[in-house]
Simulated assay, not measured.
Amino acid sequence: MTWVMTSKKQFYLHDDESLLDGLLRTGHDINYQCKEGYCGSCRIKRIASSHVIDYPFEPLAMIEKDEILPCCCRVQGVIYVNHERIDK
């Protein structure tokens, strides 16, 4: 089970639910367009995580070292994120 912690609330991801879908399900205001790692509009800051965050495929969107793409990253354990919009 994956636990997600934000400044707004804490919740767990359902089986096979993306981080983006979990954030949207729990009322977080997250921008997104493609949901496949191409556009980067959903990028958020990763504050900390108990496990390595990886991607099933290399996303095309450019992200900084402390950013993740919740639409396509794979998370496990506990993750702390800043869900506020990142303007690039």
Score class of each variant (00 low, 15 high):
81 V>F: 05
63 I>D: 02
64 E>Q: 14
73 C>V: 01
46 R>I: 12
62 M>Q: 12
82 N>K: 10
26 T>Y: 14
72 C>F: 03
81 V>W: 03
72 C>D: 03
40 G>Q: 01
25 R>N: 10
68 I>P: 00
26 T>M: 09
21 D>F: 08
8 K>A: 14
16 D>M: 10
6 T>Y: 01
17 E>L: 09
57 F>G: 03
53 I>Q: 05
31 N>I: 07
53 I>W: 09
32 Y>Q: 04
56 P>D: 08
15 D>S: 12
64 E>C: 06
9 K>W: 02
6 T>R: 05
65 K>E: 13
12 Y>E: 15
67 E>Q: 13
47 I>G: 05
31 N>V: 05
31 N>P: 01
8 K>S: 13
20 L>T: 09
35 K>T: 09
88 K>G: 05
71 C>E: 00
79 I>R: 00
1 M>H: 14
84 E>V: 01
49 S>L: 01
85 R>I: 08
57 F>W: 11
76 Q>M: 12
68 I>F: 00
23 L>F: 06
28 H>K: 05
63 I>P: 02
13 L>M: 08
48 A>H: 09
44 I>N: 02
38 Y>D: 10
15 D>N: 13
53 I>A: 07
86 I>F: 05
59 P>W: 04
68 I>R: 02
85 R>W: 06
16 D>W: 03
9 K>N: 15
55 Y>P: 07
36 E>S: 11
58 E>C: 07
30 I>P: 04
49 S>H: 04
84 E>N: 13
35 K>L: 07
7 S>A: 14
1 M>N: 11
57 F>M: 10
60 L>R: 13
45 K>S: 07
70 P>Y: 06
27 G>N: 12
5 M>G: 00
80 Y>S: 08
62 M>E: 14
75 V>Y: 05
14 H>Q: 14
69 L>E: 03
28 H>G: 03
71 C>N: 02
25 R>C: 09
47 I>S: 02
59 P>S: 07
11 F>S: 09
38 Y>T: 14
12 Y>H: 13
75 V>R: 04
25 R>V: 08
32 Y>T: 01
29 D>F: 06
20 L>M: 12
43 R>N: 03
68 I>N: 00
21 D>M: 12
19 L>M: 09
57 F>Y: 15
7 S>K: 15
26 T>Q: 12
2 T>E: 04
8 K>M: 13
44 I>M: 04
63 I>R: 02
29 D>R: 07
44 I>D: 00
79 I>P: 01
60 L>F: 11
57 F>V: 09
12 Y>P: 08
6 T>I: 10
45 K>L: 10
76 Q>E: 15
43 R>K: 15
47 I>L: 13
54 D>C: 06
81 V>H: 00
54 D>V: 05
25 R>K: 10
9 K>L: 15
56 P>N: 06
5 M>V: 15
43 R>I: 03
13 L>T: 05
11 F>I: 11
69 L>I: 06
